[in-house]
Structure formats: structure tokens, C-alpha cells
């Protein structure tokens, strides 16, 4: 009799421990999923950053603000003009592409042979310009993006849910990254972009129209930003004129983290950054999240200055 109670007690204890472990593991999985979801948004933005940097050799700090513009365009077309969500997204994507081309033409083209510092300062100027235009047009009150799609969530077991937004974001990021990789490596225009990125004069001698190629690069980068604004909009729903800056900076960090100029690097860096952010929020401290994220970046750059997948460019003379 006594033995039975004893065994029962042990079994109960073991079950409690297993249950706790399961809860812990579930929590971890949930956190990881949240991290991957956030990370895919970073990755989408980072892809735009890395693409423009890789080919035009400039840091387009206005990239984050193009996301903000894209989000406002979705808001305007869907919430104010009552377009269908698909049409709203198309408007946003097309207008962002155009905006990218216009910004490059008005602000950066004249500085093609200027020092990179001048270009960087101009980019910061463009960033503030876009934010203030948005402030004038939409005011500082946050606007809410209506629900665009109803994608059912997936339930795994009792406690793990993958939301539709997460799946959409992740799916979109993977599709865009694959398309971009194929475009850059296999198409004539993509190869011309790589040629321009390496050596503008030699590219010109091959008959490549360097200015047009860079314009197209900006258009593609801005299309990524528009898609990022879509993912951001459906996950976070509220937008204001400064919405683009923090994700922009984080995504820039992600691009550097993964190795700026490298497409898989941007993807990896973005996802890792999102995961680190969510993990440190859940397990270490909410307040210190950003400090931890940037701390990891500094650590990676000390150990590997070119970023995780960055290439060391060797030149033979």
C-alpha cells in the first residue's frame, strides 16, 4: 500500500516535469515562429537594401521610408478609395517602383561620381523628406490598415498556432528571394546588373546602359519595399509617418549582419535578427531587446567583418 503511494508520487512528479518541459518547448516553438515571421519582414526589406547597395554601391537610407509610403498607399486605396485589396497592393507596388526610379533620378543620379558620404547624406535627406510629406498629407495620427485577407491559421497540437499573416509573410519572402536570385544569376538584365555593380566603366564599354540599369535596380528594390509594407501592414495594422524608419534600420542591420550585397545573406540576416529579437524579448528582457540585437551585430562584425555570408573581394592586379 505504502509502495503504491510512493510509486504514484514519483509518476506524478515525472509527469509534471514532462508537462513543464513540453510547455517550455511549445513556448520556444511559438517564440521561434514569431521570430521567423518578424524576421521575414526584415529579410524582405534587407533584400531591397542589399540589392541597391550591391549594384549601385550606395546605402539608400530612404529605403525604409518607401515602405511607409507603400503602406500609406495600401491604406489610401483600400480604406479610403475602397479598392479591392489586390488592386490596392498593385497600386502600392507600381507606385513604389516609380517612386524608387524618381528618387534615384532626382537625388542620386547627379551624385554618381560624388563621394559616398555625399550620397549617404542625400539619402538621409530623402528619408526625412518622405516622412514629412507623409506627415503633411496624413497627419501624425496613426492610421489603421484594414484587414486585407482572411487566411486561416494552422493549429498544431493544442498550443502552437501559425497565423495566416506569418505564413503569407514567410511564403512571400521565400518566393521573392528565389525569384530575385534567379533574376540576378540567369537573366541578361540581372547579369548586366552584376556587371554594373563591379565595374561601371567596363560595363559601359560592353554596351550596357549604366543609368538605366541602376534605375531598374531602384525600381526592383522599391518593389521589395512595397511587399514589405504589405507584410508589415497585415501584421501590425497601424502606420504613421515614422513607421518605416525602425524596421528600415533593423533591416539594414540584418543586411550587414548577413553580408551586405549578398541576397541569401539578407535573407539569413533578416530571419536571424527577427529570431534573436523575439528570443531575447521572451527569455531575457523586453527593454534590452534592441541592445541585444545590435550587440549581436557588433559581435558578428568583430568576428567576421564581411558579415555571415559576405564575400571578401579579392582583386588581382
Amino acid at each position: 500500500m505504502r509502495k503504491c503511494v510512493y510509486v504514484g508520487f514519483i509518476v506524478k512528479n515525472i509527469l509534471t516535469i514532462i508537462f513543464r518541459k513540453v510547455t517550455q518547448v511549445t513556448n520556444l516553438i511559438v517564440t521561434l515562429i514569431q521570430g521567423i515571421s518578424l524576421g521575414s519582414i526584415y529579410a524582405l526589406i534587407a533584400l531591397g537594401y542589399t540589392m541597391v547597395y550591391g549594384i549601385a554601391k550606395m546605402l539608400n537610407f530612404a529605403h525604409g521610408d518607401i515602405i511607409m509610403v507603400g503602406a500609406y498607399l495600401i491604406y489610401t486605396s483600400v480604406a479610403l478609395a475602397h479598392c479591392s485589396p489586390i488592386l490596392g497592393i498593385l497600386i502600392s507596388v507600381a507606385s513604389c517602383a516609380l517612386l524608387g526610379i524618381v528618387i534615384e533620378f532626382l537625388a542620386y543620379r547627379l551624385l554618381r561620381r560624388a563621394s559616398s558620404l555625399s550620397v549617404l547624406i542625400t539619402a538621409i535627406g530623402v528619408s526625412y523628406f518622405l516622412q514629412n510629406i507623409a506627415l503633411l498629407v496624413f497627419g501624425s495620427e496613426p492610421k489603421s490598415i484594414p484587414v486585407l485577407f482572411n487566411i486561416p491559421a494552422i493549429q498544431i497540437g493544442n498550443s502552437i498556432t501559425i497565423t495566416g499573416e506569418t505564413m503569407l509573410t514567410l511564403g512571400l519572402t521565400v518566393i521573392i528571394m528565389t525569384a530575385l536570385t534567379i533574376f540576378i544569376n540567369k537573366t541578361k538584365l540581372g547579369k548586366a546588373m552584376r556587371a554594373v555593380s563591379e565595374d561601371k566603366d567596363a560595363a559601359m564599354l560592353m554596351g550596357i546602359n549604366v543609368n538605366r540599369t541602376i534605375s531598374i535596380t531602384f525600381a526592383i528594390g522599391s518593389i521589395m519595399a512595397a511587399f514589405a509594407s504589405l507584410c508589415y501592414g497585415i501584421s501590425y495594422t497601424y502606420i504613421k509617418p515614422t513607421t518605416g524608419s525602425m524596421p528600415g534600420i533593423k533591416a539594414f542591420t540584418a543586411a550587414v549582419f548577413g553580408g551586405i550585397g549578398s541576397i541569401p545573406g539578407a535573407m539569413l540576416g533578416g530571419i536571424l535578427l527577427g529570431v534573436i529579437e523575439k528570443l531575447s524579448m521572451a527569455y531575457i528582457s523586453t527593454q534590452f531587446t534592441d541592445a541585444i540585437v545590435f550587440g549581436v551585430l557588433i559581435l558578428v562584425l568583430i568576428i567576421k567583418p564581411t558579415g555571415l555570408l559576405g564575400k571578401q573581394i579579392r582583386e588581382k592586379v
Binding site: 541578361k188 556587371a195 554596351g207 550596357i208
Partner: peptide, 21 residues
């Protein structure tokens, strides 16, 4: 051009393809 200016990070074949751009 002087100093060759081949596209160092592209393959030999891709360089040749650029020649036919």
C-alpha cells in the same frame, strides 16, 4: 581597357556573355 577590367566575380562564360550584351 588597360588593366583588363574583367568582371572578377562573374564566371568566364558570363563575362563573355556581357561582351555580347
Amino acid at each position: 581597357p588597360e588593366g583588363r577590367h574583367v568582371f572578377l566575380q562573374m564566371t568566364v562564360l558570363e563575362n563573355l556573355e556581357m561582351g555580347a550584351y
